[in-house]
Design a protein around this nucleic acid. Sequence first.
DNA 1: TTCCTCGGCCAC
DNA 2: AAACGTGGCCGAGGAA
Length: 551
Amino acid sequence: MPSGAGVAVAPDGAASERLTWQQAAEIARIEPEARWIWPDTATCYPRLLAAGARPARCVDLRLCGRILQLAAPEAPAGPIWLDVGPAPTAERTLLDELDLATDVSPADVAAEHARQQAAVAGSPEPGRLRLLLAAESAGALIAVEMRADGLPWSRSRHDALLTAALGPRPAAGYRPQVLERLAVEIAGHLGAPHLNPDSPVELLRALRANGLDVTSTSKWEISRSDHPVVAPLLQYKKLARLLSANGWTWLDTWVEPGTGGRADRFRTDYVPGGVVTGRWATNGGGALQIPKSLRAAVVADPGWRLVVADAAQIEPRVLAAMAHDTELAAAGQDRDLYAGLVDAGVVDTRPHAKVGMLGALYGGTTGQSGVVLPRLRQAYPRALGLVDDAARVGERGGTVRTWLGRTSPAPGESWRTAQHAAAVVEANEADERRARTQARNWGRFTRNFVVQGTAAEWALCWMAELRRRLRSMSATAADGATDLPGQGRPHLVFFLHDEIVVHTPAEQAEAVATAVRESAQAAGRLLFGEFPITFPLDVAVVERYDQADPA
DNA sequence: TTCCTCGGCCAC
DNA sequence: AAACGTGGCCGAGGAA
């Protein structure tokens, strides 16, 4: 057997022996509809993809195993080679992963797949869990493809944005002109000639010495003062953030220059299921936090467009459907749900509707959300009851489930210790306060878990359905013989919780926009059947990402 | 030098 | 509007 041989197996016993990656890629090209069952998509798929194979479906045993660990804890444990713990860390190279995988036979993979199927069958809601595992695995394919294809990103536009805001790129170790000028101005206002505004300790001391009544250097606290240092300081913080998070160094590190007619690309590692709730995490480049001000650097290739789609108020919608709250669902029927709350006479303004609803989802109690919450609770008792129940379960240390059955972890050892410490006779006030605070914190976590996690499931189904539709569009394209990126096909290039971006030839953009909308409604039916809930999207066909921003 | 925590701020 | 959910990542500053 050649070194680096894979353990990927095709379904239905098509491959009962070990395949080399070349053989696997060949099969995947010939049979694009086959479902692949492998230990880990992040390890296995890049090799196939590089060889031009884009399978329709897969089972990612690692991701599915992690879900089942919590969702079906009474099932027998999975094998050690599956390593269903945290995602591999940076020290473990791809080569390590492959070497490990070569010790795993196709029979081992088949056995683990059977174990997982049995675990699903023995769970309370096998149908839902099966859907979750399929969606999770589809997401794993998409994550690898989006990294390989990359997000179109213009280095020159990015550089122009930086230069306009900060001045020309300075030599290494120097501040850009604009930041330097602001630093001098701030130091002057505070009478501290050598002040480093990047040092919270120095800055806080200087601010207090100048009579500002602040306990931290955070923006919101500083901005409440009317001292002349406030304006330049806030400006400095904003620009310093831009420079350190997404400046020229970021550009050099994360945006690969185009070669031979191919444009520049931003690449990150998407980590499906990387968040406890089931949301994706990312590794590298800060892809979860690209500032809106930089969206102008995301530019479609010549002759191509970006189809940008944003799901409106996704969390209240999935909450309405989960709770069978037809009143709340009706408020958002084919339109802005917050505006619907105003029209229903539940709250007076849209901002109040939004802050109240977010308070319900996050466990807020104070301020405006505390004022609005009782009205929401009265108008939508089923929806609010669902999240309130989830919070109570969490406060008692219990676990909760999303709609498809992703299960929250139990609180850790220190949490239980704190609760026990407060329950004994000798417990003092501090023990009790600590225990109460931690219990409430865990309640807010489980409260949000059910909604954030179900929203993530909807988004996964949305994206998986869209990928399926984009593939069938590709099959009708004139140059449908290959499946390499950048050869004329629409493809997903960005995903962020409730927002997706598709890069597409201009002539197919409208068809893609339609597919995006239809996929959203299909995802809603997949999860919630005939319950009357809609999932409106803001969809825009643009050349630059920032052009999609309404208003 | 390297590793770690913290404050702060970006995204949803 | 306020300090209430999930993340990633930066520089500062302390510890090893």
